[in-house]
Amino acid sequence: MKIIISLATHVGLVRSGNEDAIGLLGWALQGHRPNPLTLSMPLGRTHLGLVVCDGLGGHSGGATASRLAAEFLSAHDGGPADGPEERRGLIWRVREAGRRLDRAAEASPDLQGMGTTAVGIEFSPEGTAAAYNVGDSRAYRVTEGMLGRLTTDDRRSEQGSILTQALGGGSDPDPHVFEIVPQLGDRYVLCTDGLTDLVPEEAIAGIVAALSTSEDRFNTEQAAGKLIHLALDAGGNDNVTVAVAEVVAG
Rank of each mutant, 00 (worst) to 15 (best):
A234I: 00
N133E: 07
G55I: 06
L68K: 11
L13Y: 10
D20Y: 03
E215N: 13
T192R: 03
G120N: 06
L13A: 14
R33K: 15
V11C: 06
L232E: 08
S124D: 05
V247S: 06
T192K: 14
A166E: 08
A65F: 00
A231Q: 03
L227R: 04
L24K: 01
R15F: 03
A118H: 12
R87T: 15
Q165S: 04
D102H: 11
C191Y: 09
D233G: 11
A70I: 02
A224G: 10
T196V: 06
A209D: 11
E71T: 15
G83E: 08
D136H: 02
I121M: 15
Y140T: 11
I204K: 02
L73F: 03
V181D: 15
N35W: 13
M1F: 08
D54G: 10
P200W: 11
V51H: 00
L163V: 02
G98P: 05
T64W: 10
G194P: 01
G120M: 00
P80S: 04
P109D: 09
R138S: 00
R141H: 04
G17K: 14
S6H: 04
R88D: 14
A224W: 02
L68N: 09
Y140E: 04
P125L: 01
T241P: 05
D153G: 04
T192F: 09
